[in-house]
Design a protein around this nucleic acid. Structure first.
Lengths: 232, 232
DNA sequence: CGTAGCATTGATGTGGGTCAACGTATGTGG
DNA sequence: CCACATACGTTGACCCACATCAATGCTACG
């Protein structure tokens, strides 16, 4: 494991405030693994053996039921997933797979729980992380229940544009079929939603999207700080 | 505030393990308020001044956007709400209103945050509570994205039946219009969904539902531990 | 009583899923 | 280098899930 990666992980909200010994112990106990794209890292309903930290690449969280499947979210460097399952020592509720070639740090769940009990600053950081994740999930539920698919796409584009500098040129960065699942629709419907956004100032060119008229798109999308803000 | 209420609150997962001084300080700092039905206790986008504990009655969590509104969940005695907002000292993402005559204990947010920093056992309980809430929310998101409205209703009935003793007679306990919002559909569609469950062994009689054929209903509903379990 | 709110039902429209066909890369092996 | 296979995105036809609008009956309550 590269030193620069360790430095980056240390900067995570989750690890920033904890003691050196805590951090070192966790990193030492962890395994750094490389995975090609498309590898399933964890599967729902399995016991939570590790806390996962994405050091490089891209991981998709998803879940299935009765023959259907949906994407819950993505984890990019540097980010963690399934913290809650690890803390409660219960089965995963989500599955995870790599979308790109990825490097992932796996920390044994028992070590995380133990570290939390011995380092108050770390536990405090966990509270912060869980609260943030909880609030993001509330926003996602509101996104799903209060908006149509096309509206979700419009807001996703606005947010992606800001993350990429606000130039009005958006690179999807993920396949459209995965984006469709993320937004809770079928690939066919995503195509039609893109078409429907044409009159609202959106020009599609393969994986490159141009927001030609930001004001019109915003008027249609109706972004809300209580749904779309990333931070909190 | 009655002594027996204090005893019950003390039994909450959130307060069970904390020090006596922590608990007493929080309860002393809190205000016990009575509200008639239909009172809005908090509104989304307002700063989080209090942690709320429902001592008696029934509270609905809901959220609105662009003229639409949806129910996120219910809080029954003894239960807490908006813990995450309080911990992050940020605005509420949900609103809350009483559905019945209720008694609610309001604890100033600053006291909660302070207590957490001074009582490790309390902080540990907060981690447990947040993890549980997070996982319940993941389940709700899966419920929404992976099921149709009628399927959600069928599973809701199965769960309500178990909570009420498993006799096969289910009392709704809330208005059908509120239930519809909870399940993410309109009141009209809830009526039709009830009708659609007739062939699957469900008999409706106003607010009293009879599950005449449990096996048939379960076969239709396809309940899953990864979506419908209350505990975890 | 009269009125207001709620549940139900029907008619109708829209969002979105399903199925099928087709085009366009991107590879792979001959 | 080409033929072929595969995966993906797009488009059209069609159908189901669900919302909307309107009308009706019911119950609860002042």
């Amino acid at each position: 494991m590269r030193r620069e990666d360790v430095v980056e992980i240390r900067k995570l909200e989750l690890f920033r405030a904890c003691a050196d010994e805590t951090f070192d112990a966790l990193v030492t106990a962890g395994f750094l693994q490389r995975f090609p794209p498309g590898v399933v890292l964890i599967q729902e309903n399995e016991p939570s053996d590790f806390l996962y930290i994405v050091v490089e690449g891209l991981v998709e969280m998803f879940a299935g039921h009765a023959g259907r499947e949906t994407t819950i979210g993505f984890v990019r460097p540097i980010g963690t997933f399934i913290l809650a399952a690890v803390l409660k020592d219960q089965v995963y509720l989500q599955s995870a797979r790599t979308l790109e070639k990825s490097r992932v740090l796996m920390i044994p769940a028992a070590n995380v729980r133990e570290a939390m009990q011995h380092d108050t600053a770390f536990m405090s950081a966990i509270v912060g992380e869980l609260s943030t994740c909880y609030r993001n999930l509330v926003k996602e539920l509101k996104n799903q229940k209060l908006r149509t698919g096309t509206e979700r796409l419009a807001n996703w584009l606005l947010r992606a544009n800001e993350k990429q500098g606000g130039s009005g040129m958006v690179e999807l960065g993920i396949g459209k079929r995965v984006l469709a699942s993320r937004l809770g629709m079928t690939p066919e419907n995503l195509s039609r939603s893109f078409a429907a956004l044409g009159p609202h100032g959106v020009v599609v060119n393969g994986p490159r999207i141009r927001i030609a008229d930001m004001e019109t798109l915003r008027r249609f999308a109706r972004p809300s700080r209580l749904i779309d803000d990333l931070t909190s």
